[in-house]
Amino acid sequence: MIRMIASDMDDTFLDGAHRVPAPNIAALERLHELGVLFVPCSGRPYPSIMGNLEDVDQRLLTGTYVISLNGGFINRYGQDEPLTSVTLDRSVAEELYRRGMDEHRIMHVYVPSGTIYTQGVRDAESSYLAGMRGVTALTGTERDLGFVGDEDVVKILYVDTDFDALQRLGERLRPDLDATRVAITYSARRYLEFVPAGMDKGVGVRRLAGMLGIDMDEVMSIGDSANDISMLDAAGIGVGVANVCEDTRAHCDAVTAATGEQGALAEILQRFIEPGYAHGQTKLGLPTT
C-alpha cells in the first residue's frame, strides 16, 4: 500500500503557468483524508516551490516535506532551514559559468537561499519563468560568480528549447567533466543541468523515506523528465504523466492518460491509491518524525 507520493512539480503536478490544476487540489484533499503523504520533489529551490503552493489550503500540506534542488535539499514544509543540503564545488561552478558566458548561452544559476539568477534570458524563456518566485535577471556583464556573494552554488543550467541540440551538447561536454564532482541531467525539455555528483531525486526520496521509516515499496514517484528517472526507479511504483519524455517513459511502471497540465494526480489517485482502501481501511498511520 502506498504511504508516500513524491511528485515532480513543473509539467507533472503544475500547469504551464506553474499553478496547481483544480483536479490535483481535489486529489490532495482525498490523499489528506487517507493519510498518504504528498511530497513535492523538484529541481527548483524550496522558496520557489512554496510560492507555487501558497494558494493551496495549507491544511492539506502541513506535516509533509519538500525535496528540492534535484534531491540535495529536504525541508519540513513551512520551515526554511533545510534538513539536508548539497552544493557544487565552487571551481566547477565557476568553470561552467565561464564556459557558458564564452559560448553566449542562456543560463540559470541556483543558490541555497532560493534565488535563481538568469543570464541571457530571451522572450520565450522569460514567459516560462513568469510564474516562478525568486528569479533575478543578470545584466550580461558578469564574467564570474561574484554576484552570488558568500553563497554556494547548487547547480547551473544551460537553456535551449531545441532539446535534441541540448542533448547533443550534454554528451559533447560530458567527457570534459570530472564525474566525481559534477553530473549532467535534463529537465523540462529545455534545461541541461549540471549538479553535484551523487545528487539526484532518487537519493532525496530514499533519504526522506528512511527518515520517516517508510519502505521504498510503499513509495510512489511521479515525473516527466530525465531528472525524475532516479526517483521513478527508486520507488515501488514509478508513474509518468502523459507528457513524459521518451527517454523517461521506459523507467515508468505506468503512464497516465492525463497530462500534468490536466491534473494527472486525480487519475493516479483513482487508479493506484483508492484500490488499496477498497476493503474498508480509511486512513494510514503516518510517521510523525
Rank of each mutant, 00 (worst) to 15 (best):
G134Y: 00
T136Y: 03
S126Y: 07
A130C: 07
R122E: 04
T136D: 11
A130V: 05
G134D: 03
H104Q: 14
Y97H: 04
R90E: 07
D123V: 02
E95C: 11
S85V: 08
I116G: 01
M101V: 15
V111C: 10
V109F: 06
S91T: 11
E94K: 02
G100T: 06
I106C: 13
Y110G: 00
H108F: 11
R98F: 09
L129H: 01
G134A: 02
Q119N: 15
S127G: 10
A130P: 01
I116K: 03
Q119E: 09
G114P: 03
Y97E: 03
E94Q: 10
R122H: 09
Y117K: 04
L88M: 15
G114C: 05
G114S: 08
M107V: 00
G114N: 05
Y110C: 02
L138F: 09
S91D: 15
R99P: 11
E142W: 06
T87K: 06
M101S: 12
G131D: 02
L138V: 07
G114H: 12
L129F: 10
H104S: 13
V86D: 00
E95W: 14
E125G: 05
L129I: 07
A124S: 10
T87Q: 05
R122Y: 01
T118W: 04
H104G: 07
Y97W: 14
V109G: 00
Y128N: 02
Y97D: 05
T118E: 11
G140P: 00
L88R: 04
G120M: 03
D102W: 13
S85R: 12
S85Q: 10
A137D: 10
E142D: 06
V121A: 10
R99Y: 13
L138G: 07
M101E: 14
D123Y: 08
D102S: 14
V109S: 09
H108E: 13
S85T: 06
